[in-house]
Design a protein around this nucleic acid. Structure first.
Lengths: 340, 340
DNA sequence: TTGTATGCGTTATCAC
DNA sequence: GTGATAACGCATACAA
């Protein structure tokens, strides 16, 4: 890799590096002929400014750190997709870190990102994280931070999330409209922000339609393997049996679907099923499961846009706004009559 | 972000920057007491060497470029997962580029990566790419390149792939052993390396068991939407009807599964189904579909290991080896008796 | 054992 | 208009 530098061009054209630099940047105070000469030669040699030298000079890396629980996950890979698209257009590159749902690794990743001199940080908290002191301290030192999806109100930062409340409300109401009354809710760990919002939406829909909230119908998963089957069994053992399931994640939806099929329950005739998933998973899981689709890509896009804004404005104290991106309900089960 | 530099430490301790630098690097020719002093102070101030300055000095970025068709895809997100884990341990960070299956974007991404001064490149070709001149030229200029999954024998580079031939052979033989004779093969565009290898494995298994190859049973997809249903219909219209489907990708497997279910065909009683997928998708898609699981993560790991080896050895001319990672067959349909 | 000077590639400042 | 110089943070050849 023999990289052309300004110095090479200067030598070849018998100019000084400053002249070449100015010519390349299109400075006004340069002779048109010289400028042309430099430009042409640079073009011919396929000159590209060295971003590392630039970073050193400008004291910024043009890199954005993205910390997520894991990449190999539809939601996050789509979010990263959105982040990547915007970031590249704005001249930033993206460095990805995975916490694997570990608080410790989240802290280490954060330090790594700082060591790498990222210009800003985009974070989706690990499920283990309840204390966000590490982030607050970093923020206090002037690092622009935007949270997305897995957020925390403990932090005075911009937060970009799906409209979990509304999505859960609509999902639950969809089930109610199709005649369901005993709606089970399979969800993720209770202390997470998104869990609470979805649970609130679920309860609000029940309440609106005069259905009593029954905590026995709610189960919390732990991201562990083989946990969904027993949860479903447990719920089905109740009398009366649940007539619908509302699941809060891809894995819970798939697990629940599998468990119900294994028990020879017809969907949606015996039990209705609706899941909080995202577009790709919705494609894979066949009807007749309905889905509330998360705007993963858009969440990523909006989050990175906000972050870049912060970085470039050097606003240290951002107004701690919460941006909610709407979800989309895709109904695939209209077996029973809709009861308004 | 007020970053501590060597200069700060030197000033505070009344030393020269070189002494501090040497002390931090643990040079032998330094007074033990001075060393201790510097170390302690650096620790206290949480000093971290600026990787950008280091990169400029050493003329290397410690960054690896990864070019993939898309991130939001189980195979690639898992591969990236594997890449990321190894790369970070070795002190490299990973910059991801997406081609979205476009040859043009692949070329642009490659140039971007070069502009970013990556130390090496990991590439999985876009489905549009047949000409690899752009990569050959880059390689000739000394850039270490390793191909993975979507490779090309036109390039004199290390290639890391799943053992597509063997996987396809085993999948087909699995179907034959369960009594199937008319095995349809739904696959991806014909000019891709992985397509050809899988097709060859399919044909070899048929041949071994004395079943004539029938090109009417093979269909090529294009990554487009809604294309699988018609393909399946077309195949089912044949007389005699196929009694098994072997699909070459996640999307084809899911599409095929959906299409068969829609047509009320029982799986595996009426039609058997086996897919070339990966672990995550296998989890989502319920039985009774069998799968040949791709070692996505391992492919990524091996590929990045080879690349780092190339980078650090500065071997320009690598022996163009092809590394095949074995697939795993997960049988979920043993309805019919196994016929050895 | 420690300090001085230089260079990596670039741009800003000041001179001419 | 153009050139010389310094600076970004670090490591190292050379001096002392």
């Amino acid at each position: 890799m023999d990289n052309v530098t300004i110095k090479d061009i200067a030598k070849a054209l018998n100019l000084s590096t400053s002249t070449v630099s100015r010519a390349l940047r299109g400075s006004y105070e340069i002779n048109a002929e010289t400028k042309r000469l430099v430009m042409e030669y640079a073009e011919r040699l396929n000159y590209r400014p060295n971003p590392i030298a630039l970073s050193l000079k400008e004291n910024r890396s043009r890199a954005i750190g993205v910390i997520v629980p894991q990449i190999a996950n539809y939601f996050f890979s789509q979010a990263i997709n959105g982040i990547e698209a915007i970031a590249y257009n704005r001249g930033y590159h993206v460095i990805i870190f995975q916490t694997h749902e570990s608080y410790e690794r989240e802290v280490v990743n954060m330090q790594q990102a700082v060591s790498r001199r990222v210009d800003g940080l985009l974070i989706s908290l690990s499920s283990e994280t309840s204390d966000v002191t590490h982030l607050r301290e970093l923020q206090d030192q002037g690092m622009p931070i935007v949270l997305f999806d897995r957020v925390s109100s403990e932090l005075n930062a911009t937060q970009v999330v799906a409209d979990n409340f509304k999505g859960a409300f609509e999902a639950t109401e969809h089930l109610i409209w199709s005649g369901r009354r005993r709606i089970a809710h399979l969800t993720i760990p209770p202390y997470m922000s998104i869990t609470q919002e979805r649970l609130a939406g679920y309860r609000a829909a029940l309440e609106k339609h005069g259905i009593a909230y029954d905590e026995n119908l709610v189960r919390y998963g732990t991201f562990g393997p083989d946990e969904v089957g027993p949860m479903v069994d447990d719920l089905l053992a109740q009398n009366p049996r649940p007539d619908a399931f509302f699941t809060a994640s891809d894995r819970l939806a798939a697990g629940c679907l599998g468990a119900l099929q294994k028990r020879k329950l017809r969907i949606p005739e015996d039990v209705a099923l609706i899941g909080f998933t995202n577009m790709n998973v919705a494609e894979l899981l066949s009807p007749p499961m309905s889905t509330v689709v998360q705007p993963a890509q858009e969440i990523g896009q909006v989050a990175v846009e906000r972050l870049i804004e912060l970085i470039e404005r050097k606003q240290k104290a951002a107004p701690p706004s919460v941006i909610k991106i709407p979800t989309t309900l895709i109904a695939r089960d209209s077996t029973r009559t809709v009861v308004e």
